[in-house]
């Protein structure tokens, strides 16, 4: 379960450009939910997702992830926890273009010193239906293929939580629909999926819509 309590995130505190991205956000997402976080640009939805993913720290509040208080977790431990339990997908894919699809998918396996890295990575690519592209350089893949590689990387450690920040933002509608089906499939397997989007059409495909505006939860 994702349990955020009174989370506030302030950028550049006590400086002239101080900015409150999240303001006293309390949110619970249960295991197996398929949620969309929707809001305008600059509303704080990506910041919320980064905090959930332990990619970024918050200024105030508490965060319990699967019952564990992760607020005070040291950076190294948080990174390992993230590698094991959370898969993250970004709009721009966040792939290393010089690497092959296989190399990219194998990245999260190294921090946790997983065994049979290549085997697991190929299995993840196969699940995404792109095993044939494993030795291809990422720069040579289409947008849809890249996003599939990104999702394969996100699930290679079999995390229980998948977070996606505008995963269809760079894709055409047909490819976007395909990617959404992938997320639905992952949710059907029991994974908690949280998608950040500004697209109402994408949001409606999720079971729960969390609306955020100016750093505050409007509806959950």
């Amino acid at each position: 379960m994702i349990d955020l309590r009174n989370i506030t995130k302030v950028y550049n505190p006590k400086k002239h450009n101080e900015f409150t991205a999240l303001d006293d956000v309390t949110l619970k997402i249960s295991d197996g939910e398929f949620c969309a976080v929707i809001g305008k640009s600059g509303s704080g939805k990506s910041t919320l997702l980064h905090i959930i993913a332990l990619l970024d720290k918050f200024s105030f509040g508490d965060y319990f992830l699967n019952g564990k208080d992760v607020a005070k977790t040291p950076e190294g431990a948080a990174a390992k926890y993230r590698a094991k339990n959370i898969g993250f997908v970004k709009q721009d894919f966040a792939l290393i273009e010089d690497y092959t699809a296989l190399d990219n998918v194998m990245l999260p396996l190294y921090p946790i010193k997983a065994k049979d890295k290549k085997k697991k990575a190929l299995a993840a690519l196969k699940k995404m239906g792109i095993e044939r592209l494993s030795e291809k350089e990422t720069r040579k893949l289409s947008g849809g293929e890249k996003q599939r590689v990104a999702i394969a990387r996100a699930i290679v450690n079999e995390p229980s939580i998948i977070l996606a920040d505008e995963p269809t933002g760079s894709l055409d509608s047909k490819t976007a629909a395909e990617i959404m089906n992938v997320f639905k499939q992952l949710n059907a397997e029991g994974k908690t999926v949280v998608i950040v989007t500004h697209d109402q059409g994408i949001a409606k495909q999720c079971n729960r819509i969390i609306e955020i505006s100016d750093g505050k939860i409007i509806s959950a």
Partner: peptide, 15 residues
């Protein structure tokens, strides 16, 4: 950017 991606994939800053 590569460092950011590594971070995303579970590498610590020290790593």
């Amino acid at each position: 950017l590569k460092n950011g991606i590594m971070w995303l994939c579970g590498y610590s800053r020290a790593g």
